[in-house]
Design a protein around this nucleic acid. Structure first.
Lengths: 172, 172
DNA sequence: AAACACCTACCTACCAAGTGATAGTTTATG
DNA sequence: CATAAACTATCACTTGGTAGGTAGGTGTTT
C-alpha cells in the first residue's frame, strides 16, 4: 500500500467519524510516518484530497453493489443487496457513510468536494431506480429516494444513539 | 434578544450548515458585536455552548410538535404533523436538522454535546412511538425509527443534492 | 446621603497550539 | 541523469482559552 493510499485510508476514517474538518495534513502525515509538507506532493490542497477521497469511495461502493441485472439473474433482490452493503459499512467499520456525513455538511465544503458527494448520490439513485424498476415497482423514482433516505437516516441515528440495533430495526 | 440568545442563534445557523467545527468564538462574537473573550462569560467552553444549543433546539422542536393526544383529539394524524415540521425546518431555513448533523459526527463531539444529541433522538422516538401507537400501528417501535430515519435521511440527501424536491418526493 | 461591597457584562492583551500552504533542498529509484 | 517522493524551514492565520481590568448598576451598611 503506497503512502498516498495510506493517507486516503486514514483520512477516510477520520472524515467518517467527524466530517471534513476532522482531519489535518499534520495528523494524517504523522500516522503514515511522513511530514505534512509531503502530503501536498500527493494532494495539492486539502480540497483535492477530499474530492479524491469521495470519488474513490463512490467507485468502491458502486463496485461492491455490482450490476442490477446480474443480481436479478442470480435470483436475488438487489434492494436486499443494497441494504446489506450499507449494513456492512456500519457494522464492520462502526462508521457513518462518508458521503452521508459530507452531504449533511455540504454547504461548508469546497466545491470540488461537493461535486463528488453529488456524484455519489446521483449514482446511488440511478442504481436504485434500475433496481426498483427490475423489481416491478410502480414508482421507482419514489422507491429509490425512499430506500437511500431510510438507510442513511438509520445509519445517522444509530451513530447518534451509539446503538447499531436501531439500524437493524429500521431495515427489517 | 440578549447577546447570549444572539450568539446561540448565529452558532445554530453555522452548525446546521457545516457541523460543530463550522463556527468559532471569534466569528460569532464579531457577528453580535462583542469580543471573543466575552463569549466565555456566557459559555465557559465551546462544549458548553454546543450542549446548550442542542438542548434548546430539542426543547423548541418538542414544543413545536405538541402533544400526541391533542393532535388526535383534533382529528389530525400526528405523523403528518411530524413530517410537516421537518419539512418546514428544511424549506424555511434551507438547513439540516441540527441534531441530525451533530449525530452523524457524534464520535468527534465533546461528551456534553453527545448527551444532548442523544436526548434529541430519545425524545423523538418516544414521541413517535406514542404517535404510531395512537394510530393503531402493529409495531410502533419499528414505525418510529423508520419515520425519523426516512426524514433525517431525506433531509441529508436534499442538502447533498441541493434540491429540496427530493425531500418532497421521499415524504409523499 | 455617603461609602462600601458585590455583580453583570463586557473589555484589552495575550498565549500555546494547530491550520493549510509555500519555497527550496535532499535522497532514493529506475 | 531524471524523476519521484520525501525533506527542512517557515509563513500568515485561526483556534479555544486565560488573566486581569473596568464601567455601570444594585443593594446594604454606616
Amino acid at each position: 500500500m503506497s503512502k498516498k493510499e495510506e493517507l486516503l485510508k486514514i483520512a477516510e476514517n477520520k472524515v467518517r467519524q467527524g466530517g471534513y474538518n476532522n482531519f489535518s495534513f499534520r495528523e494524517i502525515a504523522n500516522e503514515v510516518g511522513i511530514k505534512s509538507a509531503s502530503v501536498h506532493y500527493h494532494f495539492p490542497t486539502k480540497a483535492d484530497l477530499g474530492a479524491e477521497l469521495a470519488h474513490q469511495y463512490t467507485d468502491a461502493f458502486l463496485a461492491a453493489l455490482g450490476d442490477v441485472d446480474d443480481i436479478k439473474a442470480r435470483g436475488e433482490n438487489p434492494i436486499d443487496i443494497y441494504t446489506q452493503i450499507f449494513k456492512g459499512a456500519l457494522l464492520t467499520d462502526d462508521k457513518m457513510c462518508l458521503c452521508g456525513l459530507l452531504g449533511a455538511q455540504n454547504e461548508s465544503l469546497p466545491e470540488k468536494v461537493q461535486v463528488e458527494v453529488k456524484r455519489f448520490f446521483d449514482k446511488n439513485l440511478t442504481w436504485l431506480h434500475a433496481a426498483h424498476t427490475a423489481n416491478g415497482e410502480a414508482n421507482p423514482a419514489h422507491a429509490a429516494i425512499t430506500t437511500v433516505s431510510l438507510l442513511e437516516g438509520a445509519m445517522m441515528i444509530s451513530k447518534a444513539l451509539n446503538d447499531h440495533s436501531y439500524f437493524t430495526l429500521a431495515t427489517q
